[in-house]
Design a protein around this nucleic acid. Structure first.
Length: 573
DNA sequence: TCTATATCACCC
DNA sequence: AAACGGGTGATATAGA
């Protein structure tokens, strides 16, 4: 460990209280310096916390923790700086076992058991967690229990670190650790929410539901108790002599796609389709909003096999249906900006495969229309407006290829014959031969060697039963995740308030007068991230700024607001 | 009655 | 045999 060149190596753990949407309330911290043997135990609640941590946070120290965004959240709550170098054993354990889930899970307990290390009694852990959840005030005995428990996890970390150390690629692990700091900052900032609209939506939704249902019930008679009934719908179909597709299990196919298909044959089910769709998803009760009106939740970094974040889809506003993004609104005097990479996966594939035609298509600014031109399906002077339909087909083909889509699904998607879809896919192979050489080789490599990895070493173990389409998609998606992590790191370290990541995008915030500068810094961060991952190739990024009193508007939500908006106006208290 | 599986919703 | 990648989560149904 001395060979690493650090003057101090601290393992550390903190205890705190976490409530939905709120910042952490710190209780205690224990840290162990491995070279000197020094141990620090600090009570952090009741105003007992020091103004700064009692150790050097500079580049000579390494800080080792497990799921350390929690620790850095505690630091931020205390107004402390964050350390320069972080090694996160959760992330490294996740990496070590990626693609072959470990038998006891990826928690600290699971990792300890994986290596045959002694673990704390699970019951004791549950008890201590309950105590932390309950929160203060604590008796002296309870304080002591929490610190002792915290110290137990630090001792466990010491053992885990020793076991894992030989298998850690330190240079890259430190970048991943750096991301865990960025995660803590994003979780700390959160997404500004229009809490008044949220409250109205929550209060009025039951009534809106009732109105939508009773209108549809009059016509179709399929909501007998205020809920959609399959049996009644079957009756409706029979009475009107309508045939309807079924699932493998023999049930009526009731998803949106089926309704969409069938409403072409039976236009009379159109209204029912819309009603069911509107009723489909309004779950805002779990949205984690703090008393300061900000949406904060665990971002679950590195949760996906491709290393993407995977926050809860009910607690994180960007996981909800797109129309609910209208809830995102900067406070008076503030502004937000949404910045996203343009056609990120297409660009990554073009650069990593070094396919000249594909890179040219990306450089054109409209890769999908460029593809259609390269395939000679449209004239060289075609535009988005003049050849909308063709562009849409080539776009769907481009996107589908990334996921390993075949002619059957593509045909369905573009509502053309399988032969037509086949022709598009063939055109892709003809137009981008080097991409296909590279992509096929990547799949072959993964199957032959049993692993695949990104440019920064995010590796996935690959079994013989692996889905080849998943392997085909891995380079684009996983390198995209690497890129966004770097963008988050650069932006947050350069002082931008990053509210959260959205796979290929960032939401940032600043005072109204500072937002343009913040956008500029964030765009630079994204460009730098692209240059690092793609060896000097800069993907373009797009952005939109939203200033109070405006709110985030997602065009996919317009239709829904046409239905919900007026009802809300009429029903709101 | 509880749990596993299927289906569906939504996101990038 | 299937043929769209990575996910979370709610709900309905089947089976132990």
């Amino acid at each position: 460990m001395k060979a690493l060149g650090f003057k101090a190596i601290w393992t550390l753990d903190t205890e705190f209280r976490a409530s939905p949407g709120e910042r952490q309330v710190p209780f205690c911290l224990v840290a162990h310096e491995l070279l000197s043997g020094r141990v620090v135990r600090i009570w952090l609640a009741d105003g007992a916390a020091p103004a700064a941590p009692p150790f050097d946070l500079g580049p000579d120290s390494l800080f080792v923790a497990f799921f350390s965004s929690a620790e850095w959240g505690t630091f931020l709550s205390l107004g402390w700086d964050l350390p320069v170098h972080v090694l996160d054993l959760f992330v490294e354990f996740k990496l070590l076992t990626n693609g072959a889930p470990p038998p006891y899970g990826v928690s600290l307990l699971g990792a300890l058991r994986y290596f045959g290390l002694p673990t704390m009694d699970a019951e004791e852990k549950v008890g201590m967690r309950a105590l932390a959840m309950r929160g203060g005030p604590f008796t002296e005995a309870e304080k002591n229990d929490l610190i002792t428990y915290c110290e137990g996890d630090v001792r466990a970390l010491d053992l885990l670190f020793a076991k894992m150390f030989p298998r850690i690629d330190m240079a890259r692990a430190l970048i991943r650790g750096r991301y865990m700091k960025a995660v803590a900052r994003m979780e700390f900032v959160g997404v500004p929410i229009d809490v008044a609209l949220l409250a109205t939506l929550v209060t009025c939704w039951p009534e809106i539901r009732t109105e939508l249902i009773s209108a549809a019930h009059e016509k179709y008679n399929v909501f007998p108790n205020g809920v959609f009934s399959r049996a009644c719908f079957a009756e409706y179909l029979q009475k009107n002599d309508m045939s309807w597709p079924t699932t493998k299990a023999g049930q009526l196919e009731l998803n949106h796609a089926a309704f969409k298909d069938m409403s072409r044959v039976y236009p009379e089910v159109e209204q029912l389709k819309q009603t069911l769709h509107s009723l489909g998803k309004l779950r805002v009760n779990d949205l984690a909003v703090g008393v300061d009106g900000r949406n904060r939740t665990l971002l679950s970094p590195f949760a996906a096999r491709t290393s993407r974040n995977q926050p809860s889809t009910t607690k994180y506003v960007f996981g909800l249906a797109a129309w609910l993004r209208n809830l995102i609104q900067p406070a008076p005097g503030r502004a937000i900006a949404y910045l996203d990479f343009e056609q990120q996966e297409f660009g990554i594939a073009a650069v990593l495969s070094d396919d000249a035609a594909m890179k040219e298509a990306y450089a054109s600014g409209d890769p999908y229309l460029a593809f259609a031109k390269q395939a000679k399906a449209v004239p060289p002077d075609a535009t988005k407006q003049s050849h909308k339909k063709e562009r849409d087909r080539y776009k769907n083909c481009s996107l589908g290829v990334q996921y390993g889509m075949k002619e059957h699904s593509l045909a369905r998607r573009i509502e053309q014959s399988p032969a037509h879809a086949r022709e598009l896919l063939d055109a892709h192979r003809r137009t981008y031969p080097d991409y296909w050489k590279w992509s096929d080789a990547a799949v072959d490599f993964a199957m032959l060697h049993g692993w695949t990895e990104t440019v920064f070493g995010w590796r996935q173990q690959v079994g013989v039963d692996a889905n080849p389409r998943s392997l085909q998609n891995f380079p684009a998606q996983a390198n995209g995740a690497e890129m966004l992590r770097l963008a988050c790191i650069f932006a947050s370290e350069r002082g931008v308030n990053v509210c959260g990541p959205i796979h290929d995008a960032l939401l940032i915030e600043a005072a109204d007068g500072d937002i343009d500068a913040a956008v500029k810094t964030a765009l630079h961060a994204m460009a730098d991230a692209s240059n690092v991952i793609l060896g000097g190739f800069e993907l373009r990024a797009d952005f939109k700024v939203i200033r109070w009193p405006d709110r985030y508007i997602d065009e996919r939500g317009e239709k829904m607001w046409e239905v919900v908006g007026p009802l809300l106006e009429r029903l709101k208290p």
